[in-house]
Design a protein around this nucleic acid. Structure first.
Length: 150
DNA sequence: GCCAACGTTGGC
DNA sequence: GCCAACGTTGGC
């Protein structure tokens, strides 16, 4: 079992939306590094930190679990979707989705600002490389984050 | 809304 | 295959 951090903009889809629908397809990932992780590394049962980006309270908002493994992102084939990719085809799909389920909403968002000050987290991908929307989290980082909000 | 960091595209 | 131009992400 592995740990991950998924970024989303809460204006589009945040922890409250996941709590409301309980289970959702994680789609629209259009970055090769993130795609490769979804395709090759992310597996059913893995635990996911849901991170809110580009909003007032930037930070880790809660926990989700991967409940369905990698499959082609259907939006890449939908001409009406903003995630449509004319260079992709069903027999050679380029982009990947997984399904996640709601586990927990933190009592408060753990702010990025705080994460940056925690010595246990100063090697996090989130801190070292700002712009990756699916990223691995080490077990000790996961524990430090859960302890900090608990 | 600005801008830095970084990924992608495309000319050569 | 290099690299400049361009686009996107995302914090502030």
């Amino acid at each position: 079992m592995k740990y991950w951090l998924f970024k989303s903009e809460p204006d589009e889809f945040g922890i409250d939306d996941l709590a409301a629908c309980q289970r959702e397809r994680w789609d629209g990932i259009r970055n090769y590094q993130a795609r490769n992780l979804l395709r090759d590394e992310v597996a059913v049962g893995d635990q996911v930190l849901l991170y809110h980006s580009s909003c007032k309270n930037v930070g880790v908002a809660g926990i989700a679990e991967v409940v369905a493994g990698a499959y082609p992102d259907p939006l890449q084939f939908d001409p009406d979707s903003k995630y449509f990719d004319p260079k992709s085809s069903p027999d050679k799909p380029r982009w990947i989705s997984v399904d996640i389920a709601f586990v927990q909403k933190f009592a408060r968002v753990l702010p990025l600002q705080t994460i940056k000050t925690m010595p246990a987290l100063n090697e996090m991908v989130l801190v070292k490389q700002g712009r990756l929307s699916v990223q691995p989290v080490r077990a000790q980082e996961w524990q430090a984050i859960v302890a900090a909000v608990g």
